[in-house]
Write a protein that binds this DNA or RNA. Structure first.
Lengths: 258, 258
DNA sequence: TGGGTGATTGCATTATTCGCAACGCTCGTT
DNA sequence: AACGAGCGTTGCGAATAATGCAATCACCCA
């Protein structure tokens, strides 16, 4: 593990909070400002940061370029985009696209609700593995060994009275999810939000992403959220089809839950 | 300058091209794979990269998170988004948003043409300083000293017969641009593409970004592109107004060129 | 003109990175 | 079932590259 790289990345993360002077950055790392300077010079050289006329550092265009390449590499995002936009337009609700990556589930796209209530989530952030619909969908599709491993690492701190509290319970839930082809988060993450999620499959038949709709209580109660299920499954089906998923892995009509 | 950081960033850039194995990455740097491994471990720790089941490295979610923060910090991008989308929808042409940053001009947003012809540009990439409409707009707004400095650093390699070939010519052109409130690229970058660009100002009155429309010859000739000028200026005006630009810095109707 | 803030550079010290070699793991082959 | 190739990982001395200090420079304001 490289101390130098870790420091440089921490500086980048710090800049994510906003512009910083050299002294402020040195302070963050607890190093001499000379050290911070040289780290920043390298970052500046590669255009990951730039300095404005006041010598303040900002995140730079190199980062954009890289991020936009990364996004393109996730072809599923581009394929999904029009379908997600349509779903967002049709339902007016918050729509997320998430993927499994190295033991965690991260949001890779988001379409905001047309209501004032905004969700606390952002592209690049992790989704809770045991209390979000997208994570359940993705975990449910993993091979059993990896699924167990992922579940074993979860911190089951309850966020709400409905939060799943242990690995056994989650594994059982994942079986249900796998069987029915969709997942829900019934006030498990936030007391006032319900979600439903469905898998998106590519040509390999594996779930490479998950789509979800999130609805706050104030907008619609739980029962009405379930009524959106057909639209969600249809969206997931359309995206999967565009991604070349085999016919027999496409979701059919919703099945009864439990 | 930190060798370690530079290497780590080069690895990230390499991953921008696609997934890579550890050996491939070590090869790129010309170092022992142990060295590459430890750099990557640090990057992985901070979620800038992740490894798939085959131990191949990919760009990771930490990068997305950071880039999306960086985008948010550029408030102008969010403010401009609906107006750019509208301009793109109304004209059907490629629309760019660019900003000046540390001596260069970079694209910070892009809306694709609805025609098959796609432009070679991408969010995060640099725009040529002497052969693009957006750069002319932004350079024209700089204080004279900085403008001269920026112009001094330009490589005036001609791309087309129309490319501006020297600093004097460019500085003169920038005067024109500043006076008329918009810029053009008349086949200066690519023989078959014409652009027009206009400044977006914020509360300080400075040009913090530039909007442009790019049109390939095959879609419409130069003269027709100029007919889009009122729409472009109106868009720039609307974005500037939303960004709190003072009334007297807003563009008025187009003036005659030269 | 002078003092203060903040960035930058030269240099000696040493912590940190580096490459090597050995180990371990997985997978495909015989 | 044993073998071997291919890759990723780890332990450890060698030495390179990062570090902090102090001095210098550049700029702004009183």
């Amino acid at each position: 593990m490289s101390q130098t790289v870790t420091r440089a990345l921490r500086l980048l993360t710090e800049l994510g909070e906003g512009e910083r002077s050299l002294d402020q950055l040195a302070e963050v790392l607890g190093v001499h400002k000379t050290t911070a300077l040289r780290l920043m010079q390298s970052l500046e050289d590669e255009r990951f940061v730039y300095r404005d006329a006041d010598y303040r550092y900002h995140l730079g265009a190199g980062l954009f370029a890289l991020a936009s390449l990364a996004m393109e590499q996730r072809g599923i995002r581009r394929i999904a985009a029009p379908h997600l936009a349509a779903l967002n337009a049709a339902t007016g609700q918050t729509v997320h696209l998430a993927a499994y990556e190295g033991g965690e589930v991260v949001y890779i796209d988001k379409y905001d609700s047309r209501h004032k209530v905004r969700m606390y989530s952002r592209v690049g952030l992790r989704a809770g593995l045991h209390n979000t619909a997208v994570a359940k969908v993705l975990l449910a599709d993993l091979p059993l060994s990896e699924r167990r491993r992922a579940v074993a690492g979860i911190d089951f701190t309850p966020h709400t009275p409905h939060t799943i509290t242990g690995p056994q319970q989650l594994l059982a839930e994942l079986e249900t999810v796998a069987a029915q082809g969709w997942a829900q988060d019934h006030a498990e993450h936030e007391t006032f939000i319900n979600c439903i999620g469905a898998p998106v499959r590519d040509a390999s038949g594996r779930a490479v992403a998950a789509v979800s709709i999130s609805v706050p209580d104030v907008v619609a109660p739980y029962e009405q959220v379930l009524e959106l299920l057909p639209q969600l499954l249809e969206t997931a089906r359309a995206v999967s089809a565009d991604a070349g998923a085999p016919e027999d892995r496409l979701p059919s009509s919703p099945t009864e839950r439990k």
